[in-house]
């Protein structure tokens, strides 16, 4: 059981770092990096659960594939918003993005 614990602890710490990054950074691209780190932590947990609890159910691996897709999509849409924002305002600092409130 030690390996499962080790993997879960790594996942927990990575999630904490990612959460800190996503909350503390002011730049959109850096916030996205925090989110990526949190998704990476989720993937570590998913693979650990698949391997050590139910290695015969391949829907577990499937779930990891979907999370990888989500990471790519998050990047694509996030960078599109960054590009649009940079074109309009000349910066992607989220402190200055109060006008998005509507």
């Amino acid at each position: 059981m030690t390996t499962l614990m080790a993997a879960l602890v790594v996942g927990a710490i990575l999630f904490g770092i990612g959460l800190y990054g996503a909350l503390s950074q002011t730049n959109l691209v850096m916030i996205m990096m925090g989110v990526e780190l949190m998704l990476g932590a989720a993937m570590v947990n998913l693979v650990a659960f698949w391997r050590f609890l139910h290695p015969e159910i391949y829907a577990g691996q499937m779930f990891v594939l979907i999370v990888m897709t989500v990471m790519a999509l998050e990047m694509a849409v996030g960078f599109a918003i960054a590009t649009g924002r940079f074109r309009a305002k000349g910066s992607v600092e989220m402190e200055e993005a109060g006008d998005l409130r509507g």
Partner: peptide, 24 residues
Amino acid sequence: MTHQKYASIFAGILATLGILAVVF
């Protein structure tokens, strides 16, 4: 390039501890 630093550190540590509690 950071803001609300202490709140973020607190949130990060809280999340980690919460998950660790469940793990153990």
